[in-house]
């Protein structure tokens, strides 16, 4: 893991409240899809770092890209960053998505709810690198609707067949990502997902019903981001090797878990 001050290379708005910020950092040479970084604020009264998932990395240029929704003080400050600004950054944290599990799968489904899309875009790129043909991958991306705007969907096109859904029907299927999966009769044999808890519960149920593996990325408030404080745990079916109780650390054993292993 690296702990350093990283410089902003580029910052742009993608949709209402959604921003893309590129940093110059050594983390680019270490990270993989599904991992995240902890970013500090410049305020001396907001002392905890914010966990933000990595949307992409260019190890040659030494750059990582973060795409996030403004949800509070930290992300608001980050969204106003200008080229040349610097932030304390720590990472990469977490386990990341298991890319190898898709190896012999015929129909790989990526499900993203709203701001769950960024780590899955990174994953789709990693899957392509691992030799996964575009025909084998479908990405279902759900959005709030016309007022919130849609983002990253065009970038997914290069790696997967893209299906959109929106709460108000303004884009794609009218309804949730799960409605879209049903309506388009997508029959996956493996799922990777990131999004709101309610969506992840539905993904877990779908995977159980079909008897297929699903890897879901969880979020929780974090303090340390390195596995020391035990602030970000999730109830697990089995006792994990670190805690020896049924509470695994999302920042370290996660954020990606096999759906059937977590009690969500």
């Amino acid at each position: 893991m690296i702990n350093e001050k990283a410089t902003v290379i580029k910052n742009e708005k993608l949709a209402t409240g959604v921003y893309s910020t590129v940093f110059k950092t050594g983390i680019a040479g270490l990270c993989r899809a599904g991992q995240f970084v902890m970013i500090g604020t410049k305020s001396d009264s907001r002392l905890l770092r914010r966990p933000i998932s990595i949307c992409g990395a260019d190890s040659e240029a030494g750059e990582i890209r973060l795409v996030y929704r403004v949800a509070g003080y930290g992300t608001e400050e980050l969204s106003r960053a200008e080229k040349g600004d610097s932030f304390e950054i720590l990472g990469p944290s977490g386990n990341g998505f298991p890319v190898d599990k898709a190896e012999n799968r015929e129909r790989i489904l990526l499900i993203a709810g709203g701001i769950g899309a960024p780590p899955l875009l990174y994953l789709s790129r990693a899957l392509k690198k691992a030799g996964t043909e575009r025909e084998r991958m479908t990405a279902v991306l759900g959005y709030r609707g016309v007022n919130a705007g849609i983002f990253l969907n065009k970038e997914f096109e290069e790696y997967a067949e893209v299906v959109l859904s929106s709460d108000d029907g303004s884009t794609g299927v009218h309804g949730t990502v799960m409605d879209a999966v049903r309506e388009k009769e997508i029959l996956p044999d493996i799922i990777y997902a990131c999004g709101p808890l309610r969506m992840l519960k539905a993904v877990k149920a779908l995977a159980a019903e079909k008897g297929i593996p699903a890897y879901i990325s969880l979020e929780e408030r974090m303090a340390c981001g390195v596995g020391a404080c035990l602030g970000c745990t999730v109830k697990t079916r089995h006792t994990d090797s670190h805690s020896h109780v049924n509470n695994a650390r999302i920042c370290t054993e996660g954020p990606v878990f096999e759906a059937e292993e977590v009690e969500i």
Partner: peptide, 28 residues
Amino acid sequence: VPWEGNPTPRIAETPSGMMNAIGLQNPG
């Protein structure tokens, strides 16, 4: 013996500080 600790959320940021209620989760 191992302690499970408290349910989440276990932490919250506060002005110039934080609150926690981990509940002493530990492996024993």
